[in-house]
């Protein structure tokens, strides 16, 4: 437990060590927030409602997405793959510290930093300029729980596509495809509510909605009571599944390493 805390702190520090990167990121997120907001608002000049979202919901969605983008680390993450590729994984596996557990603890230390320092500032800007929707106290708490689960789901998936490095010399191909899928099906590109029916169904079956769409829907108050519990449960489900698949990948990958010598 103590070890996990130390690892989490390392995750926090690794990003806290570069405050200027955070500033640059906040700037970029803010700009994108405005861009996306205006594009999507243009849609609402013709309609009052899209898939259950009104204009206010959608704008709030945009700013929440920008706030969460780094927290749930939607874009490419390769730290684990790089360790596999450069051989450090061999020493990692000898140590009594499970790599998946390590990266999970690390990510759970990183996420709060990003939420506070990358997420809050752009959101504040958005809140000042636009008329956003705010959650009830219960929804707010549920939102935080949901974000934490989203981080775990995201880490589970990232760990998986990083594991491709055990087998592929050039894992970047798989990684890029994976990231594209996440970006699209998490609701980062567009809220999933915008999708036509059949596409929406596909999105609901995939785990990625749990990474962004779910927490945002909770904040927007779109899930109540049983539905709320259901959403959280689904996140837990996907977290378990992805981490489980990750463990399998880790086991079979390390076996391959031992046999082939990396």
């Amino acid at each position: 437990m103590r070890l996990d805390w130390e690892i989490a702190r390392r995750g926090w520090r690794r990003y806290a060590a570069y405050p200027w990167a955070t500033v640059a990121g906040v700037f970029t997120n803010t700009i994108f927030g405005f861009l996306q907001a205006y594009i999507l608002l243009a849609v609402f000049r013709h309609r009052g409602d899209v898939g259950g979202y009104d204009a206010r919901d959608t704008v709030t969605y945009v700013w929440l997405a920008q706030a969460l983008i780094m927290t749930v680390y939607i874009f490419g993450w390769y730290e684990f793959a790089l360790r596999i590729r450069d051989g450090s994984i061999a020493t990692d596996l000898v140590r009594p510290l499970d790599p998946q557990r390590y990266w999970l603890a690390y990510d759970l230390g990183r996420a709060p930093y990003h939420l506070l320092f990358r997420g809050v500032p752009p959101f504040i800007v958005g809140a000042l300029v636009f008329d956003l929707r705010y959650p009830s106290p219960l929804a707010a708490v549920a939102f935080l729980v949901s974000v934490t689960l989203a981080v775990v789901v995201s880490l589970g998936f990232r760990f998986l596509y990083n594991s491709a490095a055990f087998w592929l010399l050039d894992y970047r191909g798989i990684a890029t495809v994976s990231v594209c899928i996440v970006v699209f099906f998490s609701g980062m590109t567009l809220p999933l509510t915008f999708f036509p029916g059949w596409l929406r169904t596909i999105a609901n079956v995939l785990p990625f909605a749990s990474i962004l769409q779910s927490p945002v829907d909770i904040w927007l108050g779109k899930r109540h009571g049983l539905e709320l519990a259901g959403t959280l449960a689904l996140q837990v489900f996907w977290a378990v599944v992805l981490l489980g698949l990750g463990r399998l990948a880790l086991r079979s990958g390390s076996r391959k390493l031992v046999v082939q010598g990396g």
Binding site: L40, F194, P196, L199
Partner: peptide, 8 residues
């Protein structure tokens, strides 16, 4: 997808 929802 956007244009699925609006004509313009």
């Amino acid at each position: 997808v956007i244009f699925h929802n609006v004509p313009q």
